[in-house]
Amino acid sequence: MAGVTEFIFLGRGGQGGVTAARILVSAALKDGKWGQAIPEFGAERRGAVVKSYARIADKPVPLHSNVRRADVLVVLTSSVLDLVNVNELMKSNDSIIIVNSASPIKTGYRTYYVDATAISEKLGLVIAGWHIVSTPLLGAVARVTNIVSLEAIINSLPEFVGRENLVKLNAEAVKMGYELVRGE
């Protein structure tokens, strides 16, 4: 659909890909845009490779089918890249990848990396053994794509994060992701 930026969030069940997509859409709304966040739903998928989708546009999006090929692929843990055929998830040669990784990764596409795991570790954003990597990656998305603003992402956090101190820490995580994301 023309004028729509399509996202695929690729990670493991329980990593927060669905929430990340929803925060992105809430942020888009605050920036005066429209969009939708769609989970790929199966039963009991914690730990399995899962996708969720988001579409952001300047006007309401009528689609409800899955995003088959992304303009922006956000990878919550780099190990899943070995388990999928990335070419099948990308819309064009101009599509980009933003990956949670401590070092550059060659994918054949324009790829940005940020060590979201280290950021969450540093901020103590580890819940039940799971690092919160979605918020640093959303900061990276804001920086790299310019589709949503950093402020809008931070202002959306209270809708998704319960406790006030966690809102602050996640806001810090978003900012660090924004600052620390690097190109190839």
Binding site: A21, R22, V25, S26, L29, W34, G35, Q36, A37, I38, P39, F41, P60, V61, H64, S65
Partner: peptide
């Protein structure tokens, strides 16, 4: 309302 593609899809 359609399961998941509407029930679990977030929209403004």
């Amino acid at each position: 309302l359609d399961g998941f593609i509407l029930s679990h899809t977030a929209e403004p």
